[in-house]
Amino acid sequence: MKRKIIDCRRLLCPMPVIRVQTAVESLPDGAQIEAICTDPGVLTDIPAWSRINGHKLIEAREEDGEYIVVVEVDHGKQ
């Protein structure tokens, strides 16, 4: 499974969401994006953004003071 890791440390919301959004645009359905963040707001914002735009949230967790959110791309039928 293709997984792209994006470093969103020190970025405050909504910048991590924007980074995920940009990454999603260039990836095919089924690819995954792992965002590594330090703003706890991403645990609500990235899942909300994914739900709204039809992408699949794989996981959202805290690990060693960082927040990891994984999203699977689904562009749907346009």
Partner: peptide, 27 residues
Amino acid sequence: CVEGHTHAIRKKDRQKEKRNNALWVAE
């Protein structure tokens, strides 16, 4: 924008369930 940031900074604000209102509206 008022959305985002500040909640990440001040510890006391973190307890409040926060949301990004633009995302909430879209939902």
